[in-house]
Design a protein around this nucleic acid. Structure first.
Length: 488
RNA sequence: GGUCGCGUGGCCGAGUGGCUAGGCAGAGGUCUGCAAAACCUUGUACGGCGGUUCGAAUCCGCCCGUGACCUCCA
């Protein structure tokens, strides 16, 4: 029986005790990317948030099935009006590629950068275009149940009708009347009965490449439909957690709830989880605002806003140092702080490996362990868990200095704790400085020569060597009788 | 305009009715030929004004500032 955890449910706006529908099995669905462009920091946060959930729940004993989709069809530029080109199709046209080439390319890119961030691959990664049949079946159900109607070969969801006996807007806290009064005027959009109605199936215009046959028209499915169809297919009629970025709450997730309830008579999702946005100068990082930084740019330092390159683990740690429901502001200063903090954490881990156990202990490892688990169990509070690890680092250093003592059992326990939290739960990995054996040998040779020079008290030459090596990015650490170095 | 959120020390960020995270930067120190690195020590901050309370940064009200959503966006 896994330990009790709290999880913030967007639906109830409260932290709730997590009780799986079918413990110990847990079904998790997270909205993946629309693969028409490179992943940016925001995608990283979303992926890392649910990666942590996946990792932690697996660790405490749940049998996880994690589904994260790839949206490769149906995502229009303007969902409400149903206008605009399909994003994939547009990209394909601009680049003169097959739509599926675009899809494959950006799916590969997504995997590449998420792998570097050490985000685990989901259990199932379904594509919308591979589930046209399932989506069409869902539409038929909705037509049968009277929640959808056909108009000129397209099928729309009837929001007003649904709202009569259901609560459309319950997730995002909206009321249908407010939405109606605030919806922009759509003159000429006569296909829909109501401006709030959203597309389930769109008849394809002659130039639209991605199209599938159906009894209504040659067309393609609406964006919101895929998640309902694939969630249902792989996780069943009721499953535990559905996640995504906060900006998907409305209308995407709201529409999902309506579709599922309308088709199956009951809601599928027990807990809704939404990660907050990454901001840049206090404003949301978004493609539409032209202020986004891709992961490729971040890792390479190739963006005008970047003072340097930031390694994947620095980025991961930066994201984990904030709670997933808070906005997180990007800045070079903050990233640099994370870079150094992460280094300190790993330094502590290394020190831990070499300290010796004594007969007695002044350290209460059980308490540290409990604190770490409690933090993670309290709605995935990674920043708190990390703060306890930093507390532990200070203790480790004190043991190393002989100010504190630890017995063999406690030491083993502390080592296991660090191993589990740093690598398994937080998913951090140590990034090796890239240096091949030959250059290592060369550096060691030079530094050995420098030792001789120092022994002769020729400090000016010794300093010169050090300066030159420093310029090459090699950090020298002189010790009592020897040296150490690393790539800075 | 509507809905929801936020405002914490130089920066980033937790937390939350009394026990006052953590990281980075800064300062001091240990070490060192000198540095660097590493390590140690160090900071009583919570937008403003009222109110509730023995006690509020934490609850309530008002104000100011700011952000997200209401079109697509993780």
């Amino acid at each position: 029986m896994p330990r009790q955890t709290l999880i913030y449910n967007t639906l109830t706006k409260k932290k709730e005790v997590f009780e799986p529908v079918n413990s110990p099995h847990v079904g998790l669905y997270a909205c993946g990317p629309t693969v028409y462009s490179d992943p940016h920091l925001g995608h990283a946060r979303q992926a890392i948030t649910f990666d942590i959930l996946f990792r932690y729940y697996t660790h405490i004993g749940y049998k996880m099935r994690y589904v994260r989709n790839i949206t490769d069809v149906g995502h229009l530029e303007d969902e409400v009006s149903g206008e605009g080109e399909d994003r994939i199709t547009k990209k394909a046209r601009l680049e003169q590629l097959e739509p599926m080439e675009v899809v494959q390319y950006y799916t590969n890119r997504y995997h590449l950068f998420l792998d570097r961030l050490n985000v685990k691959r989901p259990s199932i990664e379904p594509r919308a275009s591979g589930h046209i049949i399932e989506q069409q079946q869902l539409i038929r159900k909705l037509l049968e149940n009277g929640f959808a109607y056909e108009s000129n070969g397209s099928i729309y969801f009837d929001v007003e009708k649904y709202d009569k006996d259901n609560d459309y807007g319950k997730l995002s806290g909206r009321k249908i009347e407010d939405l109606l009064s605030n919806t922009r005027d759509l003159d000429g959009q006569s296909e829909k009965k109501n401006s709030l109605d959203f597309a389930l199936w769109k008849k394809a215009s002659p130039e639209h490449i991605m199209r599938w046959p159906s009894e209504w028209s040659d067309g393609f499915p609406g964006w919101h439909l895929e998640c309902s169809a694939m969630g249902n297919k792989y996780l069943g009629e009721q499953f535990d957690i559905h996640g995504g970025g906060m900006d998907l709450m409305f209308p995407h997730h709201e529409c999902e709830i309506a579709q599922t309830k309308g088709a199956f008579g009951k809601e599928a999702v027990k807990y809704w989880m939404h990660n907050n946005m990454i901001t840049i100068n206090g404003q949301k990082m978004a493609r539409s605002l032209q202020n986004f930084i891709t992961l490729e740019e971040l890792f390479a330092g190739s963006h005008e806003k970047l003072e340097q390159a930031y390694s994947p683990m620095t980025v991961r740690f930066f994201i984990l140092q904030a709670h997933y429901r808070s906005t997180l502001d990007f800045s070079n200063e903050a990233l640099q702080a994370s870079e150094k903090g992460l280094k300190r954490l790993f330094q502590g881990y290394k020190t831990l490996q070499k300290i010796a156990a004594g007969k007695e202990s002044t350290i209460d490892v059980n308490k540290i362990e409990e604190q770490c688990y409690e933090a993670m169990s309290d709605d995935l509070n990674t920043p708190i868990a990390i703060s306890y690890l930093f507390d532990a680092v200070r203790i480790i250093n004190s043991i190393n200095d002989g100010k504190e003592k630890i017995d063999a059992d406690s030491l083993e326990k502390l080592k296991a704790l660090f191993q589990i939290f740093i690598f398994e739960i937080l998913g951090l990995v140590e990034e090796e400085s890239s240096s091949d054996d030959l250059s290592s040998d060369l550096i060691n040779m030079i530094l050995n020569l420098r030792m001789d020079i120092k022994a002769n008290k020729d400090y000016s030459t010794a300093d010169k060597i050090r300066d030159e090596l420093t310029k090459l990015g090699i950090v020298i650490k002189d010790k009592k009788d020897g040296f150490d170095w690393e790539l800075g």
